[in-house]
Design a protein around this nucleic acid. Sequence first.
DNA 1: ACGAATACTTAATGTAGGTTAAGAAATGTT
DNA 2: AACATTTCTTAACCTACATTAAGTATTCGT
Lengths: 191, 191
Amino acid sequence: MKSILENISKHISLTVEEEQLFFSKIEVQHFKAKTILLNAGEICKYSYFVNSGLLRSFNINDNIVEHVLHFACEGWWIGDMYSLLSQKPGNLFIEVMEDSEIVLLSKENQEQLYFEIPKLERFFRILTENSLVAHQERLMDNLSLSAEDRFDKFCKRYPTLIQRVPQKQIASYIGVTPEFFSKMKSKMLRK
Amino acid sequence: MKSILENISKHISLTVEEEQLFFSKIEVQHFKAKTILLNAGEICKYSYFVNSGLLRSFNINDNIVEHVLHFACEGWWIGDMYSLLSQKPGNLFIEVMEDSEIVLLSKENQEQLYFEIPKLERFFRILTENSLVAHQERLMDNLSLSAEDRFDKFCKRYPTLIQRVPQKQIASYIGVTPEFFSKMKSKMLRK
DNA sequence: ACGAATACTTAATGTAGGTTAAGAAATGTT
DNA sequence: AACATTTCTTAACCTACATTAAGTATTCGT
């Protein structure tokens, strides 16, 4: 339970009372691998913070092909931002990939916290800014780099995930089919 | 000069004094088409708000190919978020595409404003959230849609830009070469 | 420990989109 | 008006990646 406070204290500092208030607004739950926390078509009610374990968000195209938007391991937040902000049904699934301990912060509680602890507005602003920068870079990478280069960047940026995530989901994240990914990987190893 | 206050009042309400303070922190400048406001390799010092005209941000790959990250016309903000936040040299160019009236808000002034008018923290948080949602959708579109479908979405989302932006830059935005875009367009017209 | 899923590999064939090149149309500048 | 520059088109050929299919390895659930 220390982890989420550490995460917050990287950007703002809370008093003990504020920490208490924050804790009163969140809940911690344990989930088994393969649990679906959110289905496409549902309204996303929570931001999820990963204390331990691993989650992913993805959509499904034409009812067949999955595309991974995001992985989230220890210390990361995840959610369906579109649905969370608009409170409309989203396109994303959120799935638990390993048995996980998750902090849930509901949309209502998050907004209450903004009023009660305005500093948190800053905290989430900064998180969102960082996420935006990461998405912009990934977008530009998809426009300008080959699959091989995108995989290289993925390895450098998320070295721990490579062991933990099935290869076909890394393929999906970087935007190629599992078959092509397999071929590409063995070609890269031969070098 | 009304435009930027309208933009802000969509999300928060400022008192007259706060509006005055805000105005004291910004400057308005006019630029001719083709002016480069920011070069790759430079540190981005401003957020730019477009009162009138049109800007774009893009990078250049291998010193040859441009990739458009963003267009910004009346009422939009633009900048190099990575460089602005980190204060390190970025990869983006920002170019004026039409004679424009631009509001400049420096990084320092923006941070001062966060302290003096905490509500602005909320305003920029909301802007950033919306931008993040848009980028996530564009990323997923690039992973899962054909060039034709991406162009359709572009037309629906930014109908006014189609008349104003050279076709090769729309091609760049959706992630294809100008030659392929031309071929694709004439094929779509034939239907 | 066993069978059933799930994940990975390999290979043949297909295609969306890239590259190169050259000319035509539009636009900008004096 | 005239020239230069930029933008757009067309067409032949090329390649990165997708699809289909079949077989093998690994993991999971009981």
